[in-house]
Nucleic acid binder design. Structure first.
Lengths: 348, 348
DNA sequence: CGCGTTTTGTCAACCGGTTGCCAAATATTG
DNA sequence: CAATATTTGGCAACCGGTTGACAAAACGCG
């Protein structure tokens, strides 16, 4: 850090890192076009504020110098950065891939750049990252946040914030409505002769794991199935493997897991132990992540349209930035059951 | 864009988005500490420039006001942004996950923020994104770039650039050295009785597909196997399915594919057609992506340490930013064969 | 053609830091 | 204790845009 400034360039005309053509400024344009810099600024960002004639002259000059605004110079007085932040718990968790992509795509379509940060599943890192990011972006998206409701409201008091996969009053949220997908799943399991159902839960800090369990419980009751909740150590393939033993002991013939990774790990472990899926036990995951159809049998899962969640969150944010009000109600997106090979008729 | 500025806020005290406590500045600190703003600036960013005593006074004042630098104000005069850009062809392509994570982790460890952009596999979008990003970051990483060598050199002339998965003279590169992994793979196939080998190539713009083919060809020659090259339509699961027919026609009993997705698609299609893997045909992928072990049999693959590539690229970049020279030679990282179930003895 | 209105462009201040240069304060030395 | 060397802090300019206030120019109208 220190060296950075003291190394060379002491005598040289310090400018831009190492580039030579230290890009044109509005002053250069002004000189070339024979007008005042402020006129250039207006021509370039306040449509209609200058006459069509000068507008053209300025635009031509800008093109000739191939001018690009300096985002920092613009951000300094205005606070606008044309940037939105996205915080996810774990970059390598495929659940987030679609969210990231949805957000990135929608953002760039409206000339916003996405800045990504990871919280490594830790509430503390998450808050730190959020604070750091918040000062440099126009708005923030929290995907499956682990921090407190109040901390989120704090952030939201500073700048527009949208939350994905969790519902918090007073903050705009986009949440998959699990009920449709879950009831489809439970009904389908009931129709296939299952009577005892297990739900493998995710991390305690996850708001979603609770919603999903409630959905499963309710749907099971409705379909006259018994349902038990089992805890997993972590929401990964490995966690799924570890919970296999509990699943067997529970006597359930159908399992719904908090997410697909758990389902995959569970299925691998059960198969390794000689169980046949779905003949002896049916497995249903959650999210339809990348790779859910790589398994044999392919995984039946409740799909959340995560790409859409990303898109919606960005849209809400950008709307808020334009002065629109945040939606009072959480935006709900539909979930659906994707039937593949891992669930089916119970062969006694 | 337009509306954004003209909508509201005309009468309101425009300040910071909507926050109230529009964060403290060095001027506030200076007032509180009874010193000059420039002294504050020095205390906070030039270790050793001010006396320990004033240093402490200033730090206390900063803490009390819980001051955070305004990154834009800092970036404006210095050009430093504490930010590095990463451009990938496709965010949802799992090949990049590890690169992204490696880069993110290494970056944040050194207080750099990662900005991510996607080129959607298009050389044009890629150049645009790169240019846009370049002006706002301290350095840029291109992962598997699709643009011309010269365009990359152009970028590199402006700011530090590092390239992953491609070798370009004059630009620092991090490339997996495929030879070790490939020869392990080919030797293992030869040892298992295979004589005819097929390589399923990736997209023509991909520099890597050529390297891998050359590696396969050379290793095959050395092991006295025959090798043919087949083209795929796209480097995805679907592309793998489509190439299955050509693979069968080629008469090869062992296949190495450009990447894991192709391998998985190919395996699924062959199995669906009644072939047994690996008894009748062995399949080896490339990259060991997330999910490569979800398949049955799990995929044998040549693993590139992509996380390490990300880490190395960031390290090179940050070193360059500290004034170090860019490494003249491409940095090579080792690849290795990960033997799983999809390759093995040929049962005739 | 003169007057009021609207449009268009200029001036200057500001956003919040950084840094070269200089003078004051302090430390070192003979 | 004076003279010199070294720290330390202050001043002011600058980075590159934005924007409110105002004046000049262009326009409309009786």
């Amino acid at each position: 850090m220190t060296d950075l400034t003291s190394t060379g360039a002491a005598t040289a005309p310090i400018k831009r890192g190492r580039g030579e053509k230290s890009s044109a400024t509005i002053y250069d344009i002004a000189k070339l076009a024979g007008v005042n810099p402020s006129t250039v600024s207006r021509a370039l960002s306040k449509p209609g504020r200058v006459s069509a004639k000068t507008q053209k002259i300025i635009e031509d000059a800008a093109a000739e110098l191939n001018y690009q605004v300096n985002p920092f110079a613009r951000a300094l007085p205005t606070g606008r950065t044309q940037t939105i932040g996205l915080i996810v718990a774990d970059i390598t968790n495929p659940t987030f891939f679609d969210i990231i992509r949805g957000a990135e795509t929608t953002g760039s379509a409206r000339d916003y750049t996405l800045v990504l940060a990871e919280s490594a599943e830790s509430p503390e890192t998450e808050v730190t990252a959020a604070r750091r990011l918040l000062s440099t972006v126009d708005g923030l998206i929290l995907a499956s946040p682990r921090m407190d409701d109040d901390q989120i409201r704090d952030l939201a008091a500073d700048k527009p914030v949208a939350v994905i996969n969790r519902e918090i009053t007073g903050v705009p949220c986009v949440v998959p409505d699990v009920n449709k997908g879950i009831s489809e799943a439970v009904r389908s399991l009931a129709a296939n002769g299952h009577q005892k159902l297990a739900y493998v839960a995710g991390p305690a800090q996850s708001w979603m794991t609770g919603r999903r369990w409630e959905g499963v419980k309710a749907a099971a009751e409705w379909s006259k199935l018994s349902a038990v909740r089992l805890e997993s150590s972590k929401p990964t393939v490995d966690g799924g493997r570890q919970v296999a033993r509990d699943v067997l002991e529970s006597g359930a013939t159908a399992v719904i897991t908090y997410n697909d990774l758990l389902a995959i790990g569970l299925m691998q472990e059960l198969q390794a132990g000689g169980m046949s899926v779905p003949d002896q036990i049916s497995i249903v995951g959650f999210d339809d992540i990348f790779g859910a159809d790589f398994t044999t049998p392919a995984l039946t899962t409740v799909r959340s349209p995560l790409g859409e969640c990303g898109t919606r969150a960005v849209t809400i944010l950008l709307d808020m930035l334009q002065g629109h009000e945040a939606p009072l109600e959480a935006v709900r997106v539909e979930t659906e059951l994707v039937v593949r090979g891992s669930s089916g008729r119970l062969l006694v």
